[in-house]
Design a protein around this nucleic acid. Structure first.
Lengths: 239, 239
DNA sequence: CGGCCGTTTGATGGAACTCAATCTACGTGG
DNA sequence: CCACGTAGATTGAGTTCCATCAAACGGCCG
């Protein structure tokens, strides 16, 4: 199947990410390839885990983007984090985990059950992945708490670029951008209208090129400097 | 010493919290009591862990409040989470952890080294504590992203009340409130001036009583309903 | 073609910020 | 014992950023 052949390829996004977090031994790679055989495809806006539901077993994102969302009683929504290929869902280690948020697909999505870490190298990769998740939550908090609308947009774009670089999904300095302006608004604590205006400013100044579902940052270094963006580092040996 | 006698007391805040997360066996309790013998005291505003510093070993908060802070280059600050008695600092499980945020004391603080989990019951308590930490981060994100100033203040007060209840530090419906309005502003993504005005509204309406370093919520149930506050539950057997 | 989703634009209002000054409580030293 | 300094809380006036409301536009698919 395509799923298998792509996973067997060392260049597959999800594997590339996990291998970048901790060097994977062959048994870990085959475990991942096996797991990917039973992959599941989901349409955008499809819910794949409800808040409060018990977590059967962790999932691994193979392709596409998803989000952890919280719905307020009056219809407001907050996307708490974005989930990209190679990210894990429900990756926690205490005995009776409950989902604390809903997961929705933001694009066509394929997921599989995350193989339980038989090898220490895969376990380490999971742990590092979890630590990175937390770092992204902290970054999200400072974005929402102290950044202006423009800073929020730019900082998030830089974070996504960093993360997609880990799984080799950045080419020519650009990457796929499946987010609607509405989803971006729910992520950044803004209204869709204001997100639109902010994006246009960035476009008019030539700082971002965003069209046809692809995003290019014209001068990433300048943007990093401007918003004081911090790249979450992994302490494990990179690559 | 006082530190010992108070920890030996099963009613000590830090132990009460951990015991509430997972029933602790006697060996876990003595390990905690031993650790508390070597406790360290810190003054308010004292930094106890710098961002980017390697984490020697996890710490346990015995008394007082602390905060995980991020400083921006232009002087803005964001408090990402508050740390209360019984909370752990640097409680993560991958091989080479780096601190991703600075920790500062917000009140007179005593901490000790968190005993490494020899017993499975203590390990479970640590894991649940870590899961709760993450739930609080998610709550913080929705506060900052989608709540108005008043909702933020109320929701945070309710969360702190929940958390302090876990360690038995709520009495007569009220609890110690060491936060300056400035610290509250840095937590909630507001300015001190606006926090002040928001607090006064709540006071004038008689919804909170805040004076002499103590906070009382007049009608918690009503406030919970109003802001749609969600109590992060622990799946482990409570109490 | 027509409906829908996502984007774009305009006009207006309001929540929160900024700047600046005053007030209070408290500790410290002359 | 009082003068002083400082940290935190309070108040006022003016401003800005972002939300709200409303409508139009564009592409895509049935």
């Amino acid at each position: 199947m395509t799923a298998f052949s792509r996973l067997a390829d060392p260049a597959h996004p999800a594997i590339r990410r996990l291998a970048a977090l901790a060097p994977l031994d062959p048994s870990a790679r085959t475990a991942l390839a096996d797991a990917a055989l039973r992959s599941r495809a989901l349409r955008p806006a499809r819910e794949l885990l409800a808040e409060g539901a018990p977590i059967a077993n962790p999932l691994l994102i193979l392709n596409g983007w998803a989000a952890r969302v919280r719905f307020l009683t009056d219809g407001r929504r907050q996307i708490m984090s974005l989930l990209l290929p190679g990210d894990l869902i429900g990756n926690c280690r205490h005995s009776r985990p409950l989902s604390v948020s809903t997961i929705v697909a933001l694009s066509p999505l394929t997921v599989c059950a995350a193989p339980s870490p038989g090898s220490p190298s895969l376990e380490e990769a999971y742990h590092v992945s979890h630590a990175l998740d937390e770092a992204y939550l902290l970054a999200q908090i400072t974005r929402l708490g102290r950044f202006s609308a423009e800073e929020r947009v730019v900082d998030l774009m830089l974070e996504l670029r960093d993360r997609l670089t880990l799984c080799g999904l950045v080419s020519d300095g650009g990457f796929a951008w499946p987010l609607t302006q509405s989803a971006l608004a729910d992520t950044l604590g803004l209204t869709p209208v204001h997100v639109n205006r902010t994006l246009q400013q960035l476009r008019r100044r030539g700082e971002v090129v965003l069209r046809a579902g692809r995003l290019q940052l014209t001068d990433p270094a300048e943007l990093i400097h401007r918003v004081g963006h911090i790249t979450a580092h992994v302490t494990a040996t990179q690559s």
